[in-house]
């Protein structure tokens, strides 16, 4: 991801009011981490598994933070249990920032990743979780704000799947 795109993404999150982010580092979107760490607006919680990333974010959301959990696509599979038993069942508004590894537009796609990409949307649909695919920086701030508004309206997680230019 170009540095310019990374800051656009971070600025979009900030403009949408996201102020608490749990994360497990991954490759494709990782440039956002130092940017968020520099900015006191964001409270960051590094985690050891996306499963707890979802649950910690849920706790913070109930405490009044506007939360996101940032993870690689594989993290969605790891955290399906927590997405279902906490985020979905309790109805917690939460943004999932997911690098959409193995998707058609993933510039680093390979046999290592591809099945993680092709199974992503069936899993999200099975969980009943709304998602948007984002391939470039066009209208990024608006798209993030739209997702945040939707997560509050639904009181449920909403997923942004980043691929295309974000995977360069």
């Amino acid at each position: 991801m170009e540095p310019e795109l990374a800051s656009k993404l971070v600025n979009g999150l900030k403009a949408a009011g996201i102020n608490f982010v749990t994360y497990l580092p991954e490759t494709r979107l990782s440039q956002i981490l130092p940017l968020m760490r520099q900015d006191e607006f964001f409270q960051l919680a590094p985690v050891a598994s996306e499963a707890e990333g979802v649950s910690i974010a849920a706790g913070a959301a109930l405490g009044g933070k506007q939360v996101a959990s940032y993870m690689e696509g594989t993290g969605v599979f790891v955290s399906t249990y927590n997405l279902l038993t906490i985020a979905e069942r309790f109805g917690i508004p939460m943004l999932l920032l997911v690098s959409y590894v193995g998707s058609a537009a993933d510039k680093r796609n390979s046999f290592l990743y591809v099945r993680r990409g092709t199974r992503m949307i069936p899993v999200l649909e099975a969980l009943g979780i709304e998602y948007q695919i984002v391939t470039d920086g066009e209208n990024l701030e608006t798209r993030i704000k739209d997702a945040v508004r939707m997560m509050h309206a639904l009181k449920l997680p909403v997923v942004l799947l980043f691929t295309g230019e974000f995977t360069v």
């Binding site: 608490f20 919680a45 706790g59």
Partner: peptide, 10 residues
Amino acid sequence: AVGCGLAMAL
């Protein structure tokens, strides 16, 4: 984990 998130938020 939920308790930890709550504690951080409050």
